[in-house]
Design a binder for these strands. Structure first.
Lengths: 251, 251
DNA sequence: CCGATTTTGTTCTCACGTTCACAAGCTCCT
DNA sequence: AGGAGCTTGTGAACGTGAGAACAAAATCGG
């Protein structure tokens, strides 16, 4: 009956180029889970299996995958290799993206040594720092180059992703230079809010923020049972000694 | 109709000890912004000023702060020092939390050198690794100790937060040991989904996932204008060479 | 003392994300 | 061939978060 296979105009219309941001953030997790299953020699997996491996619930996983298309088989599950390829293609890691890392301090060093960031799909084409003492240093099979060469490198290698691992101070200036050079995606490890023009994506990784979120919940746990001494209003004016909390730069 | 001004049972009910998770995640950002303002010698700031410094919109900031209480003055703004203290207290960083770092590879090294993680409120009490070659190494003013000493250290120093910077392989086992020893909050840098019992909080920082999210948006940008060669179905069975994508461990 | 001005705290509405529940569709067994 | 048994894909209900808009409260100038 009703062979109306036609899409209703109001319907979400799959593959209409619009995957929810929350789903995009989970696709890499699914990709990793699929890779693990594949490495274990598993050829087919149900949404339940995948969800367990990815640490989410199966309904959410199915809905997420449904945004990409209908890549499963009812009654059977998903072909691991096939789904893996489809997700990789959707994310864009079937091709290699050129990446530069700016700021070769402790963290920059660590990232540079991370073999390919722990993931294929990305190629570190340069390690940059403005400190003349660092320029020329070898890290793995790369050499630290002068930050002044940025524009040239970005143009030559079609770099679209920049990673900022400088201290907070120079981060905004570095960011501006990256954007001016043509970089359109930035991963920021510096503890500052960077401002970028429209069209440039920015993501932030901040250790101290993560720790503080944990501390909040931790306080709730221990406080629930043991800490009734919460001073609601220690003193409106004339504060008790403020224990110097907050955003130091580190490094 | 129904002028029931009475609190509906389902209503949010302010100050009922329940700050939305999204707000909790922003409080550390506000804290950092306030610290910056304080360091600049600014004594009072409006929600607009603060919002700009924190990179959010002012309505959201005011709503977030309203969950903590009424710490502002209408017509004036917020007292920077006072608000800073209140947020620090709410987060729980007016006290110091003992932290252990497990896995002293590249990233563990980097974190250990981060002076206090770039934030007061946390005290690294031990660097642990199971590799005998690393044990005894000095990093800053600390010495790497054997992972076997974990339980003893956690008990002695009341450690409640553990940071995992091991490779993916041993991460779950390390996690289990941490939990068994009494750690109730974990910050995980290993590219795996860890499972923990109820009551234990876990947060994940994953470089390759962040990069992949950037890659997705990057592909959209360049693809919009230049890449029409999207193979919808390369081959149902018999895939084209799969370019080995996904969750490598990375040293 | 009063009104103009400023800025907070809160309410309302809308959009987004999650979860439930079930029809559609596939395979396998009899 | 036909029905039983799974598992996907999705519509609908629910909950959370974001933003606009405004009333309440404080300061300041006259």
């Amino acid at each position: 009956m009703t062979p109306a296979r036609s899409r209703r105009p109001g319907a979400p219309t799959r593959t209409e180029r619009g995957i929810p941001e929350a789903t995009v953030a989970r696709l890499p997790v699914y990709l990793r889970a699929l890779t693990a299953l594949s490495d274990s020699g598993i050829a087919t997996a149900s949404s339940e299996d995948l969800a367990t491996a990815a640490g989410v619930n199966s309904a959410k996983l199915r809905k997420d995958l449904s945004y990409l298309g209908s890549y499963g088989t009812r009654g059977v599950g998903y072909d691991v290799e096939y789904l893996r390829y489809q997700i990789a293609r959707e994310i864009g890691v079937t091709q290699d993206w050129a990446v530069v890392i700016v700021g070769i301090g402790n963290l920059g060093h660590a990232l540079a040594n991370y073999s390919g960031f722990g993931t294929r799909g990305f190629r570190i084409v340069a390690l940059l720092d403005a400190d003349p003492q660092l320029v020329g240093e070898r890290i793995g099979d790369m050499v630290v180059r002068d930050f002044a060469e940025l524009e040239e490198i970005v143009a030559a290698d079609r770099v679209s992703i920049g990673v900022i691992t400088t201290p907070a101070g120079p981060a905004q200036e570095v960011c501006d230079r990256l954007v001016a050079a043509g970089v359109t995606s930035i991963l920021n490890f510096a503890p500052v809010v960077l401002s970028v023009p429209d069209g440039v994506d920015i993501r932030k990784v901040d250790l101290s923020i993560e720790l503080q979120i944990l501390a909040y919940h931790e306080q709730r746990k221990s406080g629930e049972a043991a800490l009734p001494q919460v001073p609601e209003l220690p003193a409106i004016n004339g504060l008790p000694e403020l224990p110097s909390v907050g955003g130091g730069v580190g490094a």
